[in-house]
């Protein structure tokens, strides 16, 4: 049991389970999943589907934070991705064709990779603090998205585009399948190759890593590109779900949700240690929280209040002072908790 408590994922998973238990107590049908028209329906499925964008963005953010960085521009990048795709589809000759969607998605993802290259360039080549380097795009990005959509909410009617955010494949929502696929690829790359360790070493000390032969600059650059890619796909999901590109509100505050998911998952904001599984749990926790609050009769907008409480609680639990206090009270053999 003591071993279990010491696992990094223990507390976040416990919190998620408690939240689900609370929901089930209030609405007994919460856990039920039924099959209808070949799709799975139910609150849990909704949480998975709506949580997909946050999960994707949080995945990219995890790697960025592991290099001791941060990417504030993901919300703006998501908005730009949606704007590019929708404007392209709406302006094309055959706005309902599947081929249009394919090229629109490719174009949007391409633009996002460019934006990621830009962020990574500022951070890794110019050496600007990540928070500021990405603040530039966070500020200008929404302006750019509005420039692309000309300040309008661009709506598209295209069944193929709709699939990305609201469609189902093999009874499961496409959005969560995409997110889980990206998660699986990232996890394999990070944990079955040396990449994860290299990212952590850059997060611990970029200069020492460079001297040890790690291509610190390339790795830093790559994680920002990956983060922007994830944000772009998330933006496409959001746009597809509403069939519209809303430059002002698409992905608004998703960067904060993503950072929150990463922090809940046990990844240290000081870099050098990350847990992808933790991020998955964190993202699901946030989405479940968002679902819980209206269910138990509190206005949905009060969401922020609960998020604040969670952030404060997690940060205090992670802070050295509190940890020291805990440790002195329970002087048991110190087992070093390995990264998941």
């Amino acid at each position: 049991m003591r071993e279990l408590v010491r696992r990094p994922l223990f507390w976040s998973t416990l919190a998620l389970l408690l939240l689900i238990a609370l929901n089930t107590a209030v609405t007994p049908s919460f856990l039920s999943v039924r099959l209808q028209d070949g799709h799975l329906y139910g609150s849990l499925i909704d949480i998975l589907r709506n949580g997909a964008p946050v999960l994707l963005v949080a995945l990219g953010m995890t790697l960025v934070i592991a290099t001791r960085g941060i990417d504030l521009s993901v919300g703006a990048v998501a908005a730009i991705a949606g704007a590019v795709a929708c404007v392209y589809i709406a302006g094309s000759d055959r706005p309902a064709a599947t081929s249009t969607v394919v090229s629109a998605v490719a174009l949007a993802v391409g633009v996002c990779i460019l934006l990621g290259l830009w962020n990574g360039f500022l951070v890794s080549v110019f050496g600007i603090q990540p928070i500021i380097a990405t603040l530039v795009l966070m500020t200008a990005g929404r302006g750019l998205a509005m420039l692309i959509t000309d300040g309008q909410i661009t709506t598209v009617v295209n069944p193929a585009f709709k699939v990305l955010g609201a469609g189902f494949v093999a009874t499961l929502p496409v959005a969560i399948l995409i997110a889980l696929a990206v998660f699986a690829v990232t996890a394999v790359l990070a944990r079955r190759t040396a990449l994860g360790m290299l990212i952590e070493s850059v997060g611990i000390n970029p200069e020492a890593s460079r001297l040890a032969g790690v291509r610190a600059r390339t790795i830093t650059w790559t994680v920002y590109v990956f983060c922007a890619f994830c944000a772009g796909v998330a933006g496409l999901m959001i746009a597809s779900n509403t069939s519209a590109a809303d430059a002002n509100n698409a992905g608004l505050w998703i960067e904060l949700d993503a950072i929150l998911a990463v922090v809940i998952g046990g990844t240290s904001l000081a870099g050098g240690k990350f847990s992808l599984l933790g991020t998955l749990v964190g993202a699901m926790f946030i989405q479940t929280l968002a679902t819980t609050i209206p269910t138990i009769g509190i206005p949905a907008e009060a969401n922020y209040l609960f998020k604040a409480v969670v952030v404060i609680a997690v940060c205090l639990l992670q802070s050295p002072r509190v940890r020291a206090a805990f440790r002195s009270r329970r002087p048991v053999s110190t087992v070093k908790a390995g990264a998941a």
């Binding site: 009060a302 922020y304 609960f306 604040a308 952030v311 404060i312």
Partner: peptide, 12 residues
């Protein structure tokens, strides 16, 4: 992150 929490708190 601390000011982020206060940001959420105040909006909430």
């Amino acid at each position: 992150i601390a000011s982020l929490a206060v940001m959420f708190l105040a909006r909430g």
